[in-house]
Amino acid sequence: MPFVPSSQKTGLNGLLFRVLMLVPGGVLGCGLIVFSLGLLAFLSLRHNDGSLLGNGFTFDNFATLLHDPLYARVAGRSLLIAGLVTATTVVTAYPVAYFLAFHAGRYRAILLFLVTLPFWTSYLLRVFAWKIVLAYNGVLNSFLTSTGLLASPSLAFLNTPAAVVVTLAHAYAPFAILPIFTALENMPRSLFEAAADLGARPFATFRRVVLPYSIKGVLAAATVVFIPTVGDYVTPALVGGPNSIMIGSLIQVQFGRANDWPFGAALSVAVMALIALVIGLLRQTDRQMEKTA
């Protein structure tokens, strides 16, 4: 038997221990994901006969999705709203992350704590807060009428797609700030010195050095925000109107009042395919930027 040094033996035992510690959680997590996705795929190919799992296999659910223009319109609206939310969130989150990474100084820990503070409150409470702000007799209308900017309260703030975009952008802002902050925090400070030595102005340094270096954080933030907002149905129901119905609302109706689980599962599978397509495009964009960098 060959001699194995004690240090190498300890390293092998440590690696084996870490692998064994990861096995239970990995098996459980992967098993639940595979089971849930498999159940959705199974349900999407079943007839709706009023039972939980349907009866017989069919492609009629997907045929309905392809031939009924309602679902295409709602899916397009969902992608548009989610895209606007993602763009708004990333654009507003980037300056905050930049300040935290480069200018917060000794207050960085406190400011990071404040960024994560919304996680301590319920998502529904934050949506209801925006409903109070945007309502006919809400905070925003009261302020505008009291200052004379509006003669009477306006109905243009609540129950609109813009209200959905603003509410979702606020709710998911921390999810965008943290990945961008991490990317900027890991940026070597020597790059600033090199840019300054080459005569680059601050804006040129940001455009040619900081932004390309942090693009992975930006794409990660966009992915984290885009995926949940596509299927959101709580926010459109509370602050959106008839023109703000998203695909998640239709899925919720199929699993709820309509009691058509197979069709709801088909809708869910279609949404996952759309999200996978968008994520694939984001990854392709990331690869192209790496090649041109």
Rank of each mutant, 00 (worst) to 15 (best):
P5C: 04
S6G: 05
S7G: 09
K9M: 04
R18S: 07
M21Y: 05
V23E: 11
P24Y: 10
G29Q: 11
G50D: 09
L53D: 03
F62D: 01
L65I: 10
D68Y: 01
D68K: 01
Y71C: 14
A75F: 12
G76M: 07
R77N: 15
Y98N: 14
R106I: 13
L111Q: 09
F113D: 00
V115W: 02
L117Y: 02
Y123K: 03
R126Y: 12
F128D: 04
K131S: 10
Y136H: 11
N141Y: 02
T145A: 08
T147I: 15
L150M: 07
P153L: 07
Y172Q: 03
I177S: 00
L178Y: 02
L178Q: 06
F181S: 06
M187C: 02
E193I: 13
P202F: 13
R207S: 11
R208T: 09
Y213Q: 01
K216L: 14
A220V: 15
A222P: 07
T223C: 06
V224H: 07
V224T: 15
V225E: 06
P228L: 03
Y233E: 08
Y233V: 08
P236R: 02
P242Y: 00
M246A: 07
M246S: 04
V253G: 05
A265K: 00
G280I: 14
L282H: 08
E290G: 05
E290Q: 10
